[in-house]
């Protein structure tokens, strides 16, 4: 949809008119079919009525008329089919046109982008950045030369001091607050439990010993 809505033409084109006319023709055929169907049903009723009256001739005539209408109906059916097929082909062709238009546009954009990225430009750019990197390296070398060995030692010293500080920060401080009371109760319970367990163990152990 994006392709077709981005198109500036929000107008009725010749193709649109052609489609409309074909669809109108189709509508007319459909309405005609409805009418024939009504006539078909009516002729049948008429034939029945004549038969009841005993007028065989007229009943036959009505049925003959009905037959003719039925033939018309099949004819219009095939016409309708042709018309609908044609309409659909046109609509599909329009869709294809849209796709082609989209492809063309995409191709153009790609070309333009490629034009902006010409080989020469890329080469020049790479050369320039290489020169920049070289220049940067030179500056670093020059700066490094100006620092003496003594100064280098001082820098090392400073780094070590910083590292020590960092380590000191990382070690947590010793907690000063008392332990909460509940934990002590728990601890008591636990010790009681332990006693009981050990008593039981003793009881169990004794027969074991006796044995």
């Amino acid at each position: 949809m994006g392709i077709s809505s981005s198109r500036p033409s929000r107008r009725i084109t010749k193709q649109d008119n052609a489609i409309l006319n074909m669809k109108l023709q189709r509508d007319r055929l459909q309405q005609y079919q409805k009418r024939i169907q009504v006539v078909l049903d009516r002729e049948r009723d008429i034939a029945k009525q004549y038969l009841e009256k005993g007028d065989k001739e007229r009943a036959l005539l009505a049925l003959r008329k009905r037959k003719y209408q039925a033939q018309l109906l099949t004819k219009t059916d095939s016409q309708l089919e042709t018309l609908e097929k044609l309409t659909q082909s046109i609509e599909f062709a329009l869709v294809e046109k849209d796709v082609l238009f989209g492809l063309q546009q995409g191709n153009q954009v790609l070309k333009e982008i490629n034009k902006e990225m010409s080989m020469d430009k890329v080469e020049k750019l790479l050369d320039e950045s290489a020169a920049g990197i070289e220049y940067q390296n030179e500056i670093s070398e020059m700066l490094a030369d100006t620092i003496t060995n003594a100064e280098e030692d001082e820098i090392e010293e400073e780094l070590a001091a910083l590292q020590r500080e960092e380590i000191a920060k990382r070690i947590p401080s010793v907690p000063t607050a008392d332990l909460p009371e509940q934990e002590t109760e728990n601890a008591e319970e636990e010790s009681e439990e332990e006693e009981r367990v050990s008593e039981r163990n003793r009881g169990r152990r004794q027969p074991a010993l006796a044995a």
Partner: peptide
Amino acid sequence: RGQAQIMRSADGEVAGVKFFGVQ
């Protein structure tokens, strides 16, 4: 609203409509 356009048939009668997308 700009969402459609009325169309005329060959004999000048108002008979159809072309729809556009919502923008």
